[in-house]
């Protein structure tokens, strides 16, 4: 097996004849923090949706540990250990914070089909172990005090933390973060940066889209820059930062806050 766990090669995705991603390739090393940047509407989120199976790209391959996962059902991709957060935050708003995080334990839970009807000793142990794991994650993300509160009632910054906790509860190998710092204040962003580092130290590979340049440059080991669905530059942060093509792309676009 190669040193890359995720290899995206020559992927293209069209929407009604319009190209959203154009012949995109990139390779993510195990344990890396991999940044993806680019102006609005560049196709960054579309790329994440292709990796996580929500969209099926028409052309190209997405290799996970050497196996093509292109077009697999999203739940199968999650089972492989690829978990994500959403740019637009998709929590189960009416459910409590703890229940939201528990959804991440779904694929780790060993309950059998009949445990929906009859409890067994194995089920009781499994249930307890999973809730304990939820407790640990709530500690890690400072969410313990909100355990019983409906996720939708909490502030933006807290909701972003719940989403990360939920994804991390599934013990992912690859964590995909879609603009984790969007809508956060300076303090929260700083906290988030430290959290992402800690997650990396656990051995989780991280891919992230981020518009906060300071954060993405300080965290990422490698960065790909996308514009109009195609790769315009890639390399280590210091290289990308000074690449004239990248500067041109950013000056050419008006807004940098919101993605497509």
């Amino acid at each position: 097996m190669s040193e890359y766990i995720l290899e995206i090669s020559h992927v293209s995705k069209y929407f009604q004849g319009l190209v959203a991603i154009n012949d995109l390739s990139m390779k993510v090393k195990k344990g890396q923090i991999y940044g993806i940047i680019g102006p609005n509407g560049a196709g960054k989120t579309t790329l994440f949706n292709c990796i996580t199976g929500i969209y099926r790209p028409e052309i190209g391959q997405i290799l996970w540990k050497g196996k093509d996962i292109k077009g697999s059902n999203p739940y199968k991709i999650a089972e492989l250990g690829i978990l994500r957060t959403f740019q637009t935050i998709r929590l189960f708003a009416e459910m409590s914070v703890a229940e939201n995080i528990m959804s991440g334990r779904h694929i780790k839970s060993k309950q059998r089909w009949y445990n929906g009807v009859i409890p067994t000793p194995a089920y009781v142990r499994d249930e307890k172990a999973n809730w304990e794991k939820v407790g640990e994650l709530m500690d890690f993300f400072n969410l313990t005090e909100y355990a019983t509160i409906p996720a939708g009632d909490l502030s933006y910054g807290i909701q972003r933390r719940i989403e990360m906790a939920r994804a991390l509860a599934a013990e992912p190998e690859l964590l995909i973060l879609d603009e984790p710092a969007a809508g956060l204040n300076e303090n929260e962003t700083l906290e988030l940066t430290q959290t992402i580092r800690k997650i990396q130290e656990m051995g989780v590979t991280i891919m992230m889209i981020e518009h906060d340049m300071e954060m993405v440059m300080s965290l990422s080991e490698y960065i790909t820059v996308i514009n109009f669905g195609a790769k315009i530059s890639e390399g280590v942060p210091s290289f990308v930062q000074d690449d004239p093509v990248v500067i041109e792309a950013y000056i050419g676009s008006d807004e940098e806050d919101e993605d497509e």
Partner: peptide, 19 residues
């Protein structure tokens, strides 16, 4: 719980590995 997750947000549920 899986039923509730699907009910509240099908795409988020799928992305958490729920069939």
């Amino acid at each position: 719980r899986a039923m509730f997750y699907i009910h509240k947000d099908e795409i988020a549920a799928q992305s958490m590995g729920i069939n």
